[in-house]
Design a protein around this nucleic acid. Sequence first.
DNA 1: CTGAAAGCGCTTACAG
DNA 2: CTGAAAGCGCTTACAG
Lengths: 352, 352
Amino acid sequence: MTKENTFFGVKEIARRANVSIATVDRVIHNRSGVSEKTKKKINDIIKELDYQPNILASRLASKKIISLAVLIPKVSAETDFWEAPLNGITRAEAEIKKYGVQIELFFFDLNDPNSFNEQAGLILEGHFQGVLLSPSFIEEARKFSEACHKLKIPFTFFDSDVPEQHNLCYIGPHLFQSGYVGAKLLTYRLKEKQQVAVVNISKETDNYNYIQIEEGFRSYFKDHSLPGEILRVNIKDTDSLSVTRQLTKILNDNENIKAMFVTNSRVSAVATFLEKSGRSDISLIGYDFLKENIKHLEKGFIDFLICHKPEEQGYRGVMSLYETLVLGARVEKVHFMPIDIITKENQAFYKN
Amino acid sequence: MTKENTFFGVKEIARRANVSIATVDRVIHNRSGVSEKTKKKINDIIKELDYQPNILASRLASKKIISLAVLIPKVSAETDFWEAPLNGITRAEAEIKKYGVQIELFFFDLNDPNSFNEQAGLILEGHFQGVLLSPSFIEEARKFSEACHKLKIPFTFFDSDVPEQHNLCYIGPHLFQSGYVGAKLLTYRLKEKQQVAVVNISKETDNYNYIQIEEGFRSYFKDHSLPGEILRVNIKDTDSLSVTRQLTKILNDNENIKAMFVTNSRVSAVATFLEKSGRSDISLIGYDFLKENIKHLEKGFIDFLICHKPEEQGYRGVMSLYETLVLGARVEKVHFMPIDIITKENQAFYKN
DNA sequence: CTGAAAGCGCTTACAG
DNA sequence: CTGAAAGCGCTTACAG
C-alpha cells in the first residue's frame, strides 16, 4: 500500500555521480557552470536510469510562473465561432493554473488587419514565454511569427495554418480534405442533372482557408468524374437582406441547383433563406456547431454540419505550449483535427 | 515573475486557528481525534479562506498508492474491438502513475459468463479502491456491483450500461440514438421499394446492447413513416463460411434488399461477402474503427462506420475513478460518448 | 485530543 | 565550477 521505490530521482543520480543534487539539477536543465566531464557523467547516469523528472515536485518547488499570450479574433455576433476556442483556452488555463501557468488574452478584429498588428506588438513587449495564435491574416501573422522566432518565443498556430514558419506546431483542420468530405456528403444522394453551388459568405473571398476548402470540394467531383459545373457564389455583404437578394437571383438563374455547400459557419443565413422561401428540396451543408446552425439542422434545412472541434483546438493549443515549456516534451509539428460530421440525429452528443 | 501568494495553505489556517498544521490536516481529511470546538474553528477558517488543497503537494507527500481494478473482455481475433479501450486505459495509467495510481487488469471471456464471475471474485478479494468494468453480462455485473457497493468501492461502467445500479458513472454510447443515426445514414439515399436488413452477427442475439441499437434503428423508420418491412437477419455462427451461406440465402430470397445495417463491428464480414459476390449496389453500415473495417470502407464496400470513441471510453473511465479518489471531484453520473460518423473521406483524421 | 519534526522530489539563492 | 541548506505545501509516524 505504499509507493514503490521503483523510480530514481535526483538524489540517486547525485549519489552515483558523486556530486550534489544542485549539480544534477544544473545538468538536467542545461544550465551553465558545470564542467564537461561531470556533465557527461551525469547525463550518462540519467540515460542509464531512464530518469523521469517528477513534475509535481518540480512545479511545487519552483517559484517561476509561466505566462502565455493568446491572440485570437474577438467574439461578436458575426464571429461567434470564436466562443468555442476561447472556452477551450479557458478550460486549459483552469487546469494548469495550479502548475504556475498564467494566460493573457489579446483580441483582434477580424475586419481589421491593423488590430492584429497592434495586439501582436503588445505581446512582443510583454515578455511572454509562449504564444498561441490564430494567424487569420497571413502576411501580418508571418511578420509576427518571425519576430517571435527572433525572440525565441515558441508559438503555436491554430484554426488555420501559415506554411513554412518556425511555429512549434499547427493544430487545426486539414481544410482540403474537409472540403472533400463536404462534397462526398453533398453528392451522396444527388441525382443526375442536379447542380451544385459553392457559397462563400464573407468579405474576404480570397481567404486562403476558403480556397483550400473549395479545392478539396472540387477535387472530389474530379476524382469521381461527377458531371456538371459547380457554381461559385460569392456573397460579400453578410447581412440577411443581401444574402436573400443574391440567393434568390442565383436560384432563379439556375433552376437545377439542388445542393449548396457553404464554406464557413454562415450556413445558417442560407438555411434561413431556404426556410423562408420554402425550398426544402435543396440539400445544404456548412460548417460549425453553432446554436444558429443547430437550430436549422434540427428543422431539417441543413443536412450536415462539418466541424473541427474548435474547443479542443483552443485547449490543445494551450497545452502544446504547456507541454514544451513546463514538461519539456516534444510535440508533433502538425496536429490535424478530425473532420466531424454532425446531423440532426447525432448532434445532441457532439463535443465541440 | 514569481508566484503570487494569493492562495492560502494549511500553514495559514493553522496560524489563524492557533493550532498545528497536523490538526488542520486531520480536519481537512475528516480524521478522528479532534475536539468539536477546534474542528469547527478550523472549518470556519477553511470556508472563509476558500481553501483549495494543493494536489501536487498532497500527492507528493503521500506515500499511499491508489490501486484500481479494470475488468474487461480479453482481446482476441473475434473481439479486437477491445484493443482500443485497453489503449485508453493504458494511456490513462501512464498519465497518473506519477500521482501514485496503479492499475491491475482483469480479463474475462466474452463467451463465458463464468469467467466474468471468477475475475470479479478476484477483484473483490484484492482490496482495490476503485473498479472500471464493462458489464457485458448484465446479471453477473449486477451481482458484482452490489458487492462493490457493499464494500464501498466506487465503480464505473463503460461501453455498456446497467441501469439502476450504484455505479459512480456510465461512460459510453447512447445506443438507441446510435441505431437511430445508423438508420438516417442508411436511408439517406435509399429509393422507394428498396428494402433494408438489420444484420446481427453474434452468438448472443438477445444481448441488451443489440436490442437497444435495433430499437433506435426501427424508431427512425417509424418516426419518418418509411414504408417497407425491415428484415431481421441473425447469424449465430460468425465464421466466414456461415456468414456467406446465410447472406446468400437472404439476398436470394429478398431481391429488393439494397441496404444493410450491421449492429456490431463484424460488418467487415458482410463487406467481404459483398465484395466477393460483386454486390456493390448494396449500401452497408456498421460499427467501429477497426483495421478490417477501414479496409472495406476504403474499397467502398462499407458506406459509413459509426463509432463511439472506444479509446476515450477507456481513458475517461479510468480518469473518472482518479478524479473521485485522488482529486475528490464529483463526476457526472452519465457521460454519453459522441456518435461519430466515419467515411472513406474523413477516416484518416479520426481519433478513436 | 494535539504538536514537533521529518520527508516527498525537486528548485533556488547563497557561499565558496 | 560545486555544494549545503532552506523551502514549496502537504502527509505521516511518533510522542505526549
